[in-house]
């Protein structure tokens, strides 16, 4: 009788179509996001995440339609990230049916944006997504799919974002993303232990033991994965059964 660890499949969406990259390049088109969302909903995913990677401004409205169609058919929490830059972007996503929005680069350019968004819409719907990478003996925040360094130290950044009103942190290891070698446990635990808000671990899942490690060793409240679900390597139910057997509390009903 307790709060369960959330298993969150993530769909990367480009111009309204699902893709999944390896280290953020070599994208492979693989389907309709709404159909994928319905499959995950029926399988008992605890939340769903859309990451909009559409680059061109004129194609950006496609995500609103994807979110709206999903919200009409899936009665589960949906987070949308990618290109969230203004209060207006947030309002449009929430009105389309998103429950939470993930802010990444815009928070780095203007940390006050997070404070403003949390005040306006409530912390419960403001997720700060941070892409972190080892740089020397510390973790730093990177942007542009891990190519551009900011010089911002990751743990201090996470604390600052929590203080500014973020309700949750979506933490991606850019060293691990796409490698299938497991989460960066040291990074995950350092961030999860430093803030009082939930942390979602992301980047690097290749096996079900990796999911267990993210929670047991990384202290994450939720684990996010894309390709292992999207390419059918493991189902949501297999993942939950494995985690439960390893002693991680998950929702089986």
């Amino acid at each position: 009788m307790m709060l369960k660890t959330r298993i969150i499949p993530c769909l990367d969406v480009d111009k309204g179509r699902v893709v999944k990259g390896v280290n953020f390049v070599d994208l492979v088109d693989a389907g309709d996001p709404v159909e994928q969302a319905k499959i995950y909903d029926a399988a008992g995913a605890d939340e769903l995440c859309f990451l909009d990677i559409t680059a061109s401004h004129e194609d950006r409205d496609t995500i609103f339609e994807v979110v709206a169609q999903t919200a009409e058919q899936c009665f589960m929490p949906v987070t949308v990230g990618g290109g969230v830059r203004s209060v207006d972007d947030i309002r449009k996503l929430l009105l389309a049916g998103a429950d939470k929005v993930a802010i990444n680069t815009a928070a780095i350019h203007n940390p006050e944006f997070v404070r403003e968004a949390a005040l306006k819409f409530g912390s419960q719907c403001i997720v700060v997504a941070m892409d972190a990478k080892r740089n020397g003996d510390r973790f730093e925040i990177f942007t542009h799919g891990g190519r551009k360094e900011t010089g911002i130290e990751a743990i201090g950044w996470a604390k600052q974002m929590a203080e500014y009103g973020a309700g949750e942190i979506l933490l991606t290891s850019m060293d691990k993303d796409g490698t299938k070698s497991g989460f960066d446990i040291e990074l995950t635990r350092a961030i999860a232990d430093a803030v009082s808000i939930p942390v979602i671990a992301s980047g690097g899942v290749g096996t079900l033991d990796h999911m267990v490690e993210g929670v047991r060793d990384g202290h994450a409240s939720a684990v996010l994965a894309a390709s292992i679900f999207h390419f059918g390597t493991y189902s949501i139910q297999e993942t939950k059964a494995h985690m439960q057997a390893a002693g991680v509390p998950v929702r089986m009903d």
Partner: peptide, 12 residues
């Protein structure tokens, strides 16, 4: 325990 209380919990 994290705040917000976020996710699926069991009703008694």
């Amino acid at each position: 325990l994290k705040i917000p209380h976020m996710g699926w919990n069991a009703l008694s």
